[in-house]
């Protein structure tokens, strides 16, 4: 719909209000609108402007105007440097969040622009990862770019605006609507060379992004999930249908630049070096998904106190993370 020209659009949707729409069009003054945008700190570029990302022109229905807040330079670098979208479920598992974060961080540290949709779950985790690594971050919203949607991510929105960029095809003040999310996904797909789906159930919006990306000739990758877990059925189906299997930053870099062409950021975890033998074996058990302290003690022949001490040390140095109600998970560091 956003691809239609003015007359067609009015004919299609305005109906009885067609006269009103024509009047608005006649009285619209571009310079007034531009001043208004400037006052709000929002930048704009039309499809023919020089700041408009060239990759978007690959779309059958490119956004007529792109609005953004944040650094112009970040948007410009999109037209030069490779970019990767990291997308996934809002209701993601702890594992999905960890992987999203670590991909964002690894890619960011390698200087790749990480694009995502600032949704809850995997999207936000990926944004946090790239921001924590000080890498180039870009968010594509389904509402006006100056609006932090969802509200809980307003802190993240601030960080993105501060060091990255937040773009949208919607003018400032426009609320997110049901249809604007899939429309947003086509922009994400067009902006990047590769889309990584971290965790997606069947019928997930991330699958729409993946489909649009492959239609545009972009690569699609997915992170494998458990076959018994419904939350990863969609991303696993992508793998079955030929998406690239991704185990981490290295795999993504290999796909972009050819095997071994660019090494991932060299970050062996210094915390691993400090571990004692019982801590190592407890860590292995947690990695294997056997985290219950009693079971660990029986398996490793350690006292309850020793198991807790090992878990405590591992958590203190950031190698495992404890859920709100207890269970331990390996962090993806």
């Amino acid at each position: 719909m956003l691809g239609l020209d003015d007359e067609e659009l009015i004919a299609a949707v305005a109906g009885a209000h067609a006269g009103e729409a024509h009047r608005f069009l006649e009285t619209f003054d571009a310079s007034v609108a531009r001043r208004e945008l400037e006052r709000m700190g929002v930048h704009a570029a039309c499809a023919h402007g020089s700041a408009y990302p060239v990759r978007l022109r690959d779309l059958r229905d490119p956004p007529a105007t792109l609005f953004w807040v944040g650094s112009d330079e970040r948007l410009a670098s999109l037209t030069r440097e490779p970019a990767v979208a990291v997308v996934g479920a809002r209701r993601a598992s702890q594992y999905g969040l960890e992987v999203g974060y670590s991909l964002g961080r690894g890619l960011g540290a390698s200087g790749i622009t990480v694009v995502s949709g600032m949704a809850l779950g995997v999207d936000a985790a990926a944004h946090r990862g790239v921001l924590d690594a000080g890498g180039p971050a870009l968010a594509v919203l389904a509402c006006g770019p100056e609006l932090a949607y969802p509200r809980v991510n307003r802190g993240l929105h601030g960080r993105l605006v501060g060091t990255g960029a937040v773009v949208s095809e919607h003018p400032p003040g426009q609320r997110a609507l049901r249809w604007s999310f899939p429309a947003r996904n086509r922009i994400m797909a067009a902006l990047v060379e590769l889309v990584v789906v971290v965790e997606a159930a069947e019928h997930s919006g991330s699958l729409i992004t993946a489909d649009l990306a492959s239609e545009l000739g972009r690569s699609v990758a997915a992170v494998p999930g458990r076959i018994t877990h419904r939350g990863t059925a969609g991303s696993n189906r992508l793998l079955r249908e030929g998406a690239m299997l991704t185990r981490g930053t290295e795999d993504v870099l290999d796909e972009l630049f050819g095997p071994g062409a660019r090494a991932g950021p060299d970050t062996p975890d210094p915390a691993l070096e400090t571990l004692g033998s019982s801590e190592r074996s407890v860590l292995e058990q947690v990695e294997a998904g056997r985290g219950g302290p009693d079971a660990l003690g029986l398996e490793l022949r350690l006292s309850a106190a020793a198991v807790r001490a090992a878990l405590g040390r591992l958590e203190a140095v950031g190698l495992v993370v404890r859920g709100a109600l207890g269970a331990y998970e390996r962090t993806a560091r």
């Binding site: 198991v307 807790r308 001490a309 878990l311 405590g312 958590e315 859920g323 709100a324």
Partner: peptide, 28 residues
């Protein structure tokens, strides 16, 4: 407290480790 149970007058590294093990999860 863990050191007291172990009859230790000084808090040692292992006592602190164990105390970390009972900490609430990070979100909590």
């Amino acid at each position: 407290t863990i050191a007291d149970l172990g009859a230790s007058s000084r808090v040692e590294g292992e006592h602190v480790d164990e105390a970390f093990g009972y900490r609430l999860g990070s979100s909590a």
